[in-house]
Design a protein around this nucleic acid. Structure first.
Lengths: 156, 156
DNA sequence: CTAATGTCTCCAGCAACTAGAGGTTCAAGA
DNA sequence: TCTTGAACCTCTAGTTGCTGGAGACATTAG
């Protein structure tokens, strides 16, 4: 029997995250020790490792929830799991395509910066200039809004 | 003078988003009409278009805040702006690299799915199997935690 | 004048956690 | 056996970048 800390270390998941997964119903409530501490077995470790791996692959928790409930019924056909994975693949491909476009625009910006003053900085200018925006892309409420979640410094 | 709705339509930004930008100090509080409605001029439109473009490029709001305060002082050298753009470029490149890895793992998963039952589904199996995880990657508290924000259906 | 839209403020919520406060339990050393 | 210190408990609130709703006022078209 593993305490929550050992479980987290074994699966590569932080302790509060495990409690969070339990709270939202991704992990079942475990046994408790006499002193009310959570105790986990092999199945919990497997399930958590599954979640962790799927998260690493970018699956949203809702998709993981579906995948888990599928894997709880091994007799069913696996078409549904296949569909989820394919959707995730398509989402990843779309994100890559979009990021590639951003990358080339950023490269252009950076390469043009002549280290002068702000007044004639290409970086600022490129951002101010919306002539390169596709003309039809300003339909109110219709613009793309994928990959707007970069937050580079938000990790551990 | 533009009302908030016109401004939003002109810049391709939703009305509540504009109010949110004002709230967090990215946009200055505008003039008000006799009936307390916001009225914007040309400079506000330029500033908002700048923000929108930078967001499209994936810059986090904090970086945009820095960029804006730089562009308010045109005499300064533009090295700082250059650094921000380069950081963003590096972040984008890192995200692309990571997504490419995810993509190939997902492609492998999907291509192996033989449309059988869950019991022998490659998708589920691939997720359960952590043998392909790099052995050193389970140092507690040290795993990557970039690109964990996919949320494919979360757009407008 | 009236109806429909647009706008106002404030508050709550989304994902997926993370961090902190304030208290309890456990395992090991003296 | 006692004591320390780490690990654990619950609960609340914060993060990023918005989005949506409620209920009330303003503006505009017919």
């Amino acid at each position: 029997m593993l305490t929550i800390g050992k479980l987290g270390a074994a699966a590569g998941v932080k302790v509060p995250t495990i409690r969070y997964y339990e709270q939202i119903g991704l992990l079942p409530p475990p046994e408790r020790s006499a002193g009310n501490q959570r105790l986990y077995g092999r199945t919990a470790l497997d399930r958590l490792a599954f979640i962790r791996h799927a998260r690493d692959l970018g699956f949203p928790l809702e998709a993981i929830r579906d995948l888990l409930s599928l894997s709880d019924r091994p007799d069913q056909p696996c078409a549904a799991a296949d569909i989820i994975a394919k959707q995730q693949l398509a989402a990843v491909e779309a994100r890559i395509a979009r990021l590639e476009a951003l990358k080339s625009e950023l490269e252009r910006m950076v390469s043009q910066c002549a280290q002068g003053t702000i007044a004639n900085c290409r970086v600022i200018e490129a951002l101010s200039d919306h002539s390169s925006c596709a003309p039809g892309s300003h339909k109110p409420g219709a613009h793309s809004q994928d990959d707007k979640r970069t937050t580079p410094g938000a990790g551990r």
